[in-house]
Computed example of a mutant assay.
Amino acid sequence: MTDSDNPEWTTDDFAKAKPASELPAHIRAAFPRTRGPQKAPPKVPVSIRLSADVVEHFKAGGPGWQSRIDEALRKVVGV
């Protein structure tokens, strides 16, 4: 399905494109600001298999369960 208000870009369109930093200030102002650099180093995404009862225990505490697992592991390794 095509959208006449938002046609697919052509090779020529991509060639003419400019980075947002080169747009006029009044246009840049219309877009929300990004988060910027993080204060803490970013976490590394990994895939890990845990026992179901361990996952259930941490998930029972509600949102942030992955951070709580990270916290527990950090205590174990002493960092």
Rank of each mutant, 00 (worst) to 15 (best):
R74A: 05
V79F: 12
A25R: 04
V79A: 10
D53L: 09
S47W: 09
D70S: 14
A25Y: 03
S51H: 10
T11W: 10
D70A: 15
P19G: 06
S67Q: 10
V76D: 00
G36M: 01
T2E: 12
K75P: 01
A52C: 08
G61I: 01
G36C: 01
G61V: 00
G62K: 09
P45D: 04
P42Q: 11
L23Q: 09
P19S: 07
G62D: 06
E56F: 08
L73V: 15
R35N: 10
G78C: 09
R28E: 02
W9S: 13
E8K: 15
G64L: 04
E8C: 10
G78V: 05
K43G: 14
A20V: 05
A20M: 12
N6P: 02
P24V: 06
K43M: 11
F31Y: 15
L50I: 09
S47I: 04
H26R: 12
P37M: 00
K75L: 14
P32D: 11
R28F: 09
V77M: 05
D13W: 03
D12Q: 06
T2A: 12
P37F: 00
P7Q: 04
K75W: 10
K18E: 10
E22S: 13
R68A: 11
I48T: 11
A30R: 14
D53H: 07
P32H: 09
K16G: 03
R74Q: 08
R68F: 04
D12K: 08
N6M: 06
E71W: 07
P24G: 02
D3A: 13
R68C: 04
L73P: 01
T34S: 11
R35A: 04
E8G: 07
G78R: 01
I69C: 07
F14R: 12
A40M: 05
K43Y: 12
A25F: 09
V44I: 13
